[in-house]
């Protein structure tokens, strides 16, 4: 799951996988802006067939947070 999510992030943002690990912070490390974050959220929802609530988005700060969130939601 971890590698898959990292690949999806890299592919969606068109950046190298080498720049991403579990501790990568979307805003402070990858300098993502709100449009990038919504783009990522849409990609996760499509790939894992889950719904990510708007109120939950701000909690998804690191790749680790995303993995945990998706693992909990994705059955």
């Amino acid at each position: 799951m971890k590698e898959e999510i990292i690949s999806l992030i890299a592919q969606t943002l068109e950046i190298s996988k080498e720049r991403i690990n579990e501790n990568t912070n979307l805003i402070s490390d990858l300098k993502l802006e709100s449009l990038d974050i919504v783009d990522l959220v849409a990609a996760f929802e499509k790939k894992y067939k889950i719904e990510i609530l708007d109120k939950d988005i701000k909690e998804l700060q690191t790749v680790k947070d995303i993995i945990k969130y998706i693992e909990e939601k994705h059955v």
């Binding site: 969606t12 449009l35 783009d39 959220v41 849409a42």
Partner: peptide, 14 residues
């Protein structure tokens, strides 16, 4: 402010 771009993936979400 945003640079002119198209993100088709986010259309249905927003």
């Amino acid at each position: 402010i945003e640079r002119i771009t198209m993100r088709k993936n986010v259309l249905d979400r927003v």
